[in-house]
Computed example of a mutant assay.
Amino acid sequence: MEYRNLGRTGLKVSALSYGAWVSFGNQLDVKDAKVLLSRCREAGVNFFDNAEVYANGRAEEIMGSAIRELGWKRSDVVISTKLFWGGQGPNDKGLSRKHIIEGIKASLRRLDMEYVDLLYCHRPDISTPIEETVRAMNWVIDQGWAFYWGTSEWSAQQITEAWEVAHRLDLIGPAMEQPEYNLLAREKVELEYAPLYKSYGLGLTTWSPLASGVLSGKYSKGNIPEGSRFALENYKNLATRSLVDDILNKVEGLKPIATELNVPMSQLAIAWCAANPNVSSVITGATKEHQVIENMKALQILPKLTPDVMEKIDAVVNSKPKRPDQYR
């Protein structure tokens, strides 16, 4: 396993990590989780991601119980959670000081932990001033309930505003962002956030490297394997949007490249994400033991992703963001 600094911080995170989205609480219980988490640790993974909204809090409970039963040393792992959707009440969601403080306390109870290493604002909250959110996240850090705070799916403008507030008030700004990043979703990571890496040392922990499994090659028109994510009732709308001819044709076009490199499609897609120098960790997801084992081999093929191979991939997916013309 390769360990990378989380942006400009001193924290080391595994280049590949594991996230509880979809799986914990929806498909897996504590017994299953222990098996998958154990395989992750054996591969050197030290970063595990969660959120208060995953399975309505059950994902945090499962992860906390599994880690406790496995007897892991807390300082050996990096645990994150995310706040925004905490319930149905008017103050159970968003990024107000009230919800941030009540939300992290509830998450820590479910995880059965004294702190999380990383705490994310799961989405931007246009109804709460960013200054209120920055102050609240710093207060959480001052209490020792989290060590670093960051954002997820914020715009570059919103992240910049948070940093400007932090500078003005001599507070801690967001150290990391958690955006979607894969061969089909590249705009934010490669173009919009580009100025932030140097200006603020922003680190990325990216999600959905396989585009919800589409880039694994297991889906085709009209074929949704039993037990897969798109077979779940609450993900059928996502399947309808994802399994379209344009996307499936791109996946088919990537298969010869994977064959030429003698690697599975899933490993190719994950390694491609990890090859971006601004990505601190690629969050993987899996519901089966063999998927974890295969995913963790992705780093081994990084040397195969030569400039020529990357150009072939770009030619197939045709998704590289175009930089706007600059005035001279």
Results as ranks from 00 to 15, higher is better:
residue 197 Y to S: 06
residue 104 I to E: 03
residue 196 L to P: 10
residue 203 G to I: 04
residue 170 D to Y: 05
residue 169 L to V: 00
residue 169 L to D: 08
residue 172 I to M: 08
residue 162 A to Y: 11
residue 103 G to N: 01
residue 130 I to K: 14
residue 194 A to V: 02
residue 124 P to W: 12
residue 126 I to N: 13
residue 95 L to F: 15
residue 128 T to G: 13
residue 159 I to C: 06
residue 191 L to P: 06
residue 192 E to M: 01
residue 145 W to A: 08
residue 106 A to F: 00
residue 112 D to G: 12
residue 177 E to D: 09
residue 99 H to K: 11
residue 114 E to M: 00
residue 199 S to K: 13
residue 121 C to P: 07
residue 192 E to I: 00
residue 127 S to M: 15
residue 143 Q to T: 13
residue 146 A to H: 14
residue 137 M to S: 09
residue 146 A to F: 09
residue 125 D to V: 02
residue 166 A to C: 04
residue 144 G to V: 09
residue 117 D to Q: 02
residue 201 G to M: 05
residue 186 R to T: 09
residue 133 T to P: 15
residue 106 A to D: 14
residue 142 D to H: 07
residue 137 M to Y: 09
residue 155 S to V: 11
residue 124 P to N: 14
residue 144 G to D: 13
residue 115 Y to W: 10
residue 109 R to W: 11
residue 174 P to K: 07
residue 110 R to N: 11
residue 195 P to E: 06
residue 183 L to Y: 10
residue 158 Q to Y: 10
residue 163 W to F: 07
residue 179 P to F: 00
residue 142 D to V: 05
residue 114 E to R: 03
residue 188 K to G: 00
residue 98 K to E: 15
residue 152 S to M: 08
residue 187 E to W: 00
residue 186 R to K: 11
residue 133 T to M: 12
residue 177 E to V: 03
residue 171 L to G: 04
residue 113 M to L: 13
residue 184 L to F: 11
residue 192 E to D: 12
residue 178 Q to R: 04
residue 124 P to R: 11
residue 193 Y to D: 12
residue 145 W to R: 07
residue 194 A to F: 00
residue 135 R to W: 08
residue 170 D to Q: 08
residue 155 S to F: 08
